[in-house]
Structure formats: structure tokens, C-alpha cells
């Protein structure tokens, strides 16, 4: 097993592209080291990307935010501008693991781990976040929902790494929120979760909405019918009821150690409704 610490994205890409055997990217390590400990992965090469210039920073640009692939979630929680613009994304990122894990884990890692229950992913998908990818064939940018393809699997080609997660500049009267269900108050993986992002007009009517569910299917679910239930309404009781029903209906969950199919279906609707109410309020709706 080799450990290497490149200082540029190009070097990281070459190392990963040319590696023989299993090569893995190390940013926060909160998934990778657990998988190594359990013997689920035995990498031949570990590429620690934290020494790459700028990859540990959150950049605010004219277009919005670029969250570097090595930015710990705790740092996202300390960035007031990001928190004000995308509170739902930040609260999702800050729900991953403990304070200790927060100091290390990254949303890029959370995305690439490709767990259906990843906390930050439904919030990022609802937010319309994109992944900036560097690879041996050049750079590309894709919506985050295109990264995980199945539990534990991503669409990234050999040698490709995500450099940053991109979030748009906020339109006026917008708000997002993320809620998850866990049996304890902390330290659990989401049994089911919901991220809602919406924009209102001046009258408080929803003009755009995205609703995403986690741990409800093999990959995160973007529920168009739930969004449609909100659009054109003031998130009234009837709209929320429809949204909840659409979410419950869209779920294709499994029975496992964390919950049952029935539980996940029911609670997906409950959480989506509650998240929508929070997002609506954050967008300035009453």
C-alpha cells in the first residue's frame, strides 16, 4: 500500500489514472478509513488530495459558491455567506457524524461514497448543485445526482476526481431545508430524509421547487410530482398534503436494520412536508 500527497489536480489525476490496482482518493477519510478497517477495500494507492492548492477552500464567485473537494463540513458550517445562501445544504452537511467526523468529512466524499443514505446529497440535489470534475480526458461539470449510480458506485471514470461542488448564486426569495429521520438525536445514518429547495414570487407563491429524498431508493430520488405539488401554491395545507403523498408514493425503499419499507414511505412524506414548511419560511413566505 502506497500513500501519496500530490500538490496539483493534474498530478492527482495522473496518479489515479496511471495507478495499477486499486487507487483511492483521500480527503476527510471518514468513509475510506472505515472501509479499510472493515477490509471492504484494500487500496494499493492512497491519493491524499488535501495538499492541492485551493482544494480546501470555499470560494464565492459571481456565479455562486465553489466548495473545494477537501473542505471539511465543519468549515462549511463556519462560512456565514454559504450558510445564509444555502442553509439547507449546510445543515445537511453538518448532520454527518459527530463533531470529530465534522472536522474531517467532506460533501464531495459524502457524494462519492454513493450511499443512498448520505445526508448531504438530497440537500445538494434539491439545491441543483453541480460537480466540477477533472480527469485525464479534460474537465466536465455535471449535476450531482448523476454522480452516484448505485449504492457504492459512481459515474466517475478512472482517473477522474471531483474538484469542487458548485452551488448557484441565490435568486431572491429562495430557501432550502433538509431533514432526516434517525432513531437517536445524533450519530445515526438517515433512515429516510428529505431536502426541499424553493423560490417564491413577491406574493409568496412558489415559482420553482425541487424535492429530493434520501434512503428511499438505491440512489437519491428527485421527486418531480412533489415539486409540482408546491409550484403555484403558497405551500398551503392542501399542497403540503399532496407533496407528502407524492413523496410517499415515489419511495422505493427496502427493509433493513435501520427501518422498514412502510416506515420509510410514511416518514418520507412527513419529513418532506416539514422541510417544505421550513424552506418556505426561509424564503420569506408566511
Amino acid at each position: 500500500m502506497q500513500y501519496t500527497r500530490p500538490t496539483s489536480v493534474n498530478d492527482a489525476v495522473s496518479l489515479l489514472a496511471e495507478a495499477k490496482g486499486t487507487a483511492v482518493v483521500l480527503a476527510g477519510g471518514s468513509d475510506l478509513l472505515v472501509r479499510m478497517k472493515g477490509g471492504f477495500v484494500e487500496p494499493d494507492l492512497i491519493v491524499d488530495i488535501k495538499s492541492i492548492d485551493g482544494i480546501g477552500e470555499i470560494r464565492q464567485t459571481a456565479d455562486g459558491f465553489a466548495i473545494g473537494a477537501a473542505v471539511p463540513c465543519a468549515v462549511m458550517g463556519e462560512d456565514e455567506a454559504l450558510k445564509n445562501a444555502w442553509p439547507g445544504v449546510v445543515e445537511a452537511a453538518n448532520l454527518i457524524g459527530s463533531k470529530q467526523v465534522q472536522g474531517r468529512c467532506t460533501v464531495t466524499g459524502n457524494l462519492c461514497n454513493a450511499s443512498p443514505a448520505a445526508d448531504s446529497v438530497p440537500a445538494l440535489v434539491a439545491a441543483g448543485a453541480r460537480a466540477a470534475i477533472a480527469g485525464p480526458g479534460g474537465n466536465r461539470t455535471v449535476p450531482v445526482e448523476e454522480i452516484p449510480t448505485a449504492p457504492g458506485k459512481t459515474s466517475l471514470a478512472k482517473g477522474e476526481i471531483i474538484e469542487a461542488i458548485l452551488l448557484d448564486k441565490r435568486a431572491p426569495r429562495s430557501g432550502d431545508a433538509y431533514l432526516r429521520f434517525i432513531p437517536r438525536t445524533e450519530m445515526d445514518i438517515a433512515v429516510v430524509s428529505a431536502g426541499v429547495n424553493l423560490t417564491l414570487d413577491e406574493q409568496g407563491v412558489v415559482t420553482a421547487a425541487r424535492v429530493a429524498l434520501g434512503a428511499a431508493a438505491p440512489t437519491v430520488l428527485l421527486v418531480a410530482q412533489a415539486a409540482e405539488a408546491l409550484i403555484g401554491t403558497a405551500a398551503d395545507e392542501d399542497a403540503l398534503e399532496k407533496l407528502a403523498a407524492a413523496c410517499s408514493a415515489a419511495c422505493k425503499p427496502i427493509d433493513d436494520k435501520r427501518g422498514t419499507v412502510e416506515f420509510r414511505k410514511k416518514v418520507a412524506g412527513v419529513l418532506a412536508r416539514r422541510a417544505a414548511m421550513i424552506a418556505y419560511k426561509r424564503a420569506g413566505g408566511k
Binding site: 432513531p183 437517536r184 438525536t185 445524533e186 450519530m187 445515526d188 445514518i189 433493513d256 436494520k257 435501520r258
Partner: peptide, 24 residues
């Protein structure tokens, strides 16, 4: 303890064997 149909323990760790944490 949660056993699968295969008789294997599904939650042999503090992540899914959920003892109370301080905030509980």
C-alpha cells in the same frame, strides 16, 4: 441485535447498535 435471514448479525458496531448518546 438485528439478524438477517442468513443468521448473520447485521449491526455489529456502535453505528447501528444504538446506545444512548449524550444528546439523547
Amino acid at each position: 441485535y438485528i439478524y438477517g435471514k442468513d443468521g448473520r448479525l447485521q449491526n455489529p458496531g456502535f453505528l447501528d447498535y444504538r446506545i444512548p448518546v449524550c444528546s439523547d
